[in-house]
Design a protein around this nucleic acid. Structure first.
Lengths: 119, 119
DNA sequence: AATTTTAGTTTATCTCAATAAACCTCACGA
DNA sequence: TCGTGAGGTTTATTGAGATAAACTAAAATT
């Protein structure tokens, strides 16, 4: 199992951590109950597993992400583009844009990014 | 479970089907043995499950994908961008390009796609 | 001091993905 | 006719994700 791969439940959990970190574990239990309908033990189990995988840390009852949202997003992007598109961003964009239209704003923004990333 | 979601093993199987379709099922068993080290029954099991989910069909011993590679890629793109980037292609590209450089060729290609998709 | 709360762990259960052995039927060739 | 191969299915097992009840110890509160 790849270290950074998050299963659906774990992703939902991390969404909460990323939004509220640093957060006291008892408070986290309350939020997970409210947002995910998880009982206390579920939360502690997921927390312990993710801590073992060094995705979060739980120190002095405070929970902090070791892998930040941006890092996880980057990982996911790369995994998908590598797996399904041979590492080709143009191929990804082709698939994504199929049948879609872009707003002028998004188009300008993307063009700017492309300029800046072009060597 | 979402109909189009492919687990790792299923994805590997579909890679083979997409590449070789239409393919006779006994031949498919041989290829899966060679490429994935699967025994015959594993292949027939995965095949049956995917047929039940209408991702492939197996008619008169010939196996054909009902969901083509392009369709699956499109689905995966959309799922990821929706799940992690609120549907925003620019946000996806920001995460993907982090620290990366693009070749001139890729940059031109992307710009062209962006122009064509802009309303 | 007794009780409650906090902050966990251990143990358990269910579902299902991943893989495959054993079994089955039919058709064809020796 | 018998054996083999094709083309499957049934039954089984293991691992792991998802969830949580029961248990535990320490700290805080009454």
């Amino acid at each position: 199992m790849k270290k950074n791969k998050l299963f659906d439940a774990e992703y939902k959990f991390m969404d909460i951590v990323w939004e509220l970190e640093p957060i006291n574990s008892t408070q986290l239990v309350k939020v997970c109950l409210e947002k995910l309908a998880w009982n206390k033990s579920t939360t502690y189990t997921v927390l312990r597993k993710l801590a073992q995988r060094e995705i979060v840390k739980n120190e002095n009852t405070f929970v902090v992400a070791l892998v930040k949202r941006e890092d996880m997003q980057k990982y996911e992007c790369n995994e998908l583009v590598e797996k399904s598109f041979n590492g080709s961003l143009p191929a990804f964009i082709t698939a994504f844009l199929n049948d879609k239209t872009l707003s002028l704003k998004d188009a300008e923004e993307i063009k700017k990014m492309i300029e800046e990333a072009t060597r």
